[in-house]
Nucleic acid binder design. Structure first.
Length: 155
DNA sequence: GCCAACGTTGGC
DNA sequence: GCCAACGTTGGC
């Protein structure tokens, strides 16, 4: 059963443009350091799942494009990079702590701003919109997916 | 830059 | 296992 996700990225780090410009429009999703978000990747994501690519921590937060999960989970390389931003001293090659999946960009869209999403009745229960929600990866229901993708305009 | 909300850490 | 202190997220 195909599932749907919303994945946050800071456009200063990796934007929808970066994803679409990557070889095969595919990039590894690295740097997740939250157990709940990791568990979604590790335990629930499947190749072909739908992804709403969301820009966060920026002037205009919102959905910026459509992507799909393009790999099964594998150890996040950045946890082993000593001195790097995402280094984790407690992770080992034998017992990695964090995982990545590859994400394949399907299309960049005009930005659907967070402020508009907040006004959509169909998104009332969306995890992203809950007060205090900070998860960088959240599940999206089919109904929410349909409501959002129906509003996405060409870039 | 502010700050509310949340997650993690570590002493006990 | 509790919980205070601290760090981070992310919208505004």
């Amino acid at each position: 059963m195909k599932k749907y996700w919303l994945m946050k990225s800071e456009p200063d780090e990796v934007s929808i443009d970066d994803l679409m410009a990557a070889p095969k429009q595919t990039l590894p999703w690295f740097g997740v350091r939250n157990y709940q978000a990791r568990n979604f990747m590790r335990d629930a994501m499947q190749v072909g799942d739908g992804v709403l690519f969301y820009h966060s921590s920026c002037a205009q937060p919102g959905v910026a494009g459509i992507a799909e999960v393009a790999s099964t989970p594998y150890p996040d390389h950045s946890q082993f990079e000593d001195g790097g931003k995402y280094f984790d001293a407690k992770a080992t090659q034998e017992q990695p702590r964090w995982v990545s999946v590859d994400v394949h960009g399907l299309k960049k869209t005009a930005l659907l701003p967070l402020s508009e999403m907040r006004q959509m009745a169909a998104l009332e229960d969306m995890l992203l919109l809950k007060k205090g929600s900070r998860l960088s990866i959240t599940p999206v229901t089919l109904e929410q997916w349909q409501a959002i993708t129906a509003l996405l305009q060409p870039a």
